[in-house]
Design a binder for these strands. Structure first.
Lengths: 256, 256
DNA sequence: GAATGTTATTCTATATATTGAATGACAAGG
DNA sequence: CCTTGTCATTCAATATATAGAATAACATTC
């Protein structure tokens, strides 16, 4: 709400910010919505909201049910996602590595893209089992500082401690670590190049993350391994080493 | 180009049409582009194009490389696609049927959404063999009237013959059928409820399609089966029957 | 190293997208 | 049946997004 207002004020093309907000809202809800409720939710003027929706319908990004007068996301968004998936360099390079790690250790692996201190987006995934619906997980968003990835981002992002703390306070964990413990774990991640979340984020689940750089500065991506804590115990050191190696090799390939 | 101009004139939120055009262009290219070349390609004023891009960057739909001053699609588009995939009714219902058919007949199956006479978008997919980059195919666009699906759409869409002919002339096939042959096949599809493309669209590949209705009017979706022509020959009648049955059952479920 | 062709970006007047009130359509409730 | 509330949609006045020229920062070429 405030975020949308801020973006609107600053931009020279506010209609686009409105459109994106509408798309995200429709995505979050899932169920079709009417003009009025969308407008109310986003703090938009109904008439403006109507024009935005009509434009989005014309672009096939939003579907309009003429009977119920309800709007929902349309398949057009898929086409954009496919185009992105086909061409993203990190994704292409990460997928084989993720598949290999998932198979070798019998775990689930993810590739994520980091958006500053704000959030990460899952862009690639591999699972040892036979499951498919996997691809549905791609595109998920998580807060940046949560779980193992969060420790990586804190360790290598060069962010002011105050910013970290502010964000840290608002995270949701199954079993939240204290600020001091977390800082220590971040420090350890900085030294070893791998971060571990042993059941903090999701009880009983161990998450390991290693940062990937596309250029200098903060890490742009990360590789993640997820496994049941108990089953992982013995192989953990080997997995950490493998994940760090894969991340380093990826960073090198992305440099060129 | 003309299409964009038309959309712009009519709309009360032209920035959104521009934004969508930019996203699609960036998707088609894959490689990052500069402001100027994007503007030139789309017939936009460079300054306006810059504002559009900045707005899209703020929404994380477009990534900006500050060094090269180039723009490309960003991972934000994934999040929208995921939201759509999770909630689309046709997709949820179609996936199990597609999986079953793919396994039983050892073929590839698709679920598509129909956008009038213009195009179709692949929204679900199943493959008998080892599934790899499958999910990458989801989101693909094809001309509406091509292959087996095209015959379905022509048969059940109630479109004026002139419109059909006009579109038909511009299709690209490996081995294009004559207008008369095609009309006859469309007629057959209308009678049997299934359309077959025996090597016209892609040489050596047989494509079968059955229409799915979400309401009354034109079919909104279709189920597609794809197999190597030679391998399919004997099982073809059974497959046609199975596909038609699955499509009918889906239509009934979507009604409620 | 000056010149020329690119770029991305800023600036400002004006066409126009946005607003907020008004309209019409519909459903629920008395 | 009339009222009341909510809905989508239209309309006209005005705040503002956009266009086009001007600027600035580069390369590339001579």
């Amino acid at each position: 709400m405030t975020r949308l207002d801020d973006t609107l004020k600053a931009s020279k093309a506010p209609a686009i910010a409105r459109a994106a907000a509408v798309l995200r809202l429709l995505g979050k809800r899932g169920s079709p919505m009417g003009v009025q409720s969308i407008a109310r939710e986003l703090g938009l003027v109904p008439s403006t909201c109507l024009y935005v929706l009509r434009a989005l319908v014309a672009e096939e990004l939003v579907a309009f049910d003429a009977d119920t007068k309800r709007y929902a996301l349309d398949a057009g968004v898929l086409t954009l996602a496919r185009a992105w998936l086909r061409r993203d360099q990190f994704n292409d390079l990460a997928q084989p590595a993720l598949d290999r790690l998932a198979r070798e250790f019998g775990i689930t692996t993810l590739g994520v893209q980091v958006f500053g201190l704000d959030h990460i987006i899952v862009t690639a995934m591999s699972q040892s089992g036979q499951n498919f619906q996997l691809s549905t997980q791609v595109g998920s968003r998580f807060p940046a500082l949560v779980s193992a990835t969060g420790r990586c981002i804190a360790a290598f992002g060069n962010y002011p401690e105050d910013d970290l703390r502010l964000r840290f306070e608002h995270l949701r964990w199954d079993d939240a670590p204290s600020w001091e413990d977390w800082r220590a774990q971040v420090e350890e991640a900085r030294e070893t190049g791998v971060a571990v979340d042993a059941g903090n984020y999701i009880a009983g689940v161990t998450v390991i993350a290693a940062p990937v750089w596309k250029g200098s500065g903060s890490p742009s991506h990360a590789l993640i391994a997820i496994g049941i804590g108990a089953a992982l115990r013995s192989g953990l050191p080997r997995l950490k080493e493998a994940l760090r190696g894969a991340a380093r090799s990826l960073s090198e390939q992305l440099e060129g």
